[in-house]
Write a protein that binds this DNA or RNA. Structure first.
Lengths: 132, 132
DNA sequence: GTCAACCTTCCCGGGACTGGAATGCCGGGG
DNA sequence: CCCCGGCATTCCAGTCCCGGGAAGGTTGAC
């Protein structure tokens, strides 16, 4: 299977598939005589796994770990769960940050008339510090 | 005022201040004879403004726009508000994405025993696609 | 005279690609 | 036989926003 077909099957750009091969995340099963990468079903499945995992926001390194666990039939599900819970915690942290930013910025924006006059609480808030 | 003092006053690393000078975001008032950057009160205020604005998650380019509006005493507050509302919308988009990721991943994780056995719904969810 | 603490420039790396250039292979049409 | 489109290959550069560190000059205190 050529890289284009593998990429389509995995829902990834060929550039990305080539990149994954380069960093050793998902290597093609072989190279043909003409130098083309040759992907088999297993590699396509790995690519799809990575695509899904990346779409959950896991880093490439974590994808590597998860891929290893995926391949290891003697894995402990606890290891997988630990990774997932850790990522969940990071997501929660980011959400909390965004929420507080959102609240602050909403405050500032709602205080701003938004007309032709130059007076603007948003700029004041950005200049001074302290939003509350 | 030397760069170190300006940086401390603005709450930024000197590296960052130098970078902002390089990209023309906040330039020092002058250079001394010895080549040192010389910052005045106005530049320090701009640096602090940028620091705050960045901490709200605005991009450097948007900081540039806001800085220009900040300096323009004939600005219309509507222009500022438009930028803020746009950014708020982006924050909301990101929050929604994170929430859906969080929900999906929570689902997967809660279905996983997290023990020594290899059976793991998380990996299955990542492999197959479709979480619901 | 020496030392620390500052300042300068320059270059590299990172995370995860993305775009583009230059080149090679393959199958079909004129 | 040659050309063309569509695939593939490699390599280089850029993204975004700095951070780390080298190699060297300046300043002020002791």
């Amino acid at each position: 299977m050529n890289i284009g077909d593998a990429a389509r099957a995995a829902g990834l750009p060929t550039k990305t598939v080539r990149y994954y091969a380069e960093i050793g995340l998902v290597k093609p099963a072989a190279r043909r005589e003409n130098g083309y990468r040759d992907y088999g079903m297993q590699e396509v499945q790995q690519l799809r796994f990575v695509q899904r995992t990346r779409s959950f926001g896991f880093s490439i390194d974590t994808c590597r770990e998860l891929l290893a666990l995926y391949a290891d039939h003697n894995r402990a599900s606890a290891d997988v769960k630990a990774i997932a819970l850790d990522h969940l915690a990071q997501i929660e942290t980011k959400m909390a940050e965004l929420q507080s930013l959102h609240a602050e910025l909403t405050n500032l924006a709602s205080a701003c008339q938004g007309d032709k006059r130059p007076d603007c609480p948003i700029l004041k808030g950005l200049a001074v510090g302290e939003t509350a």
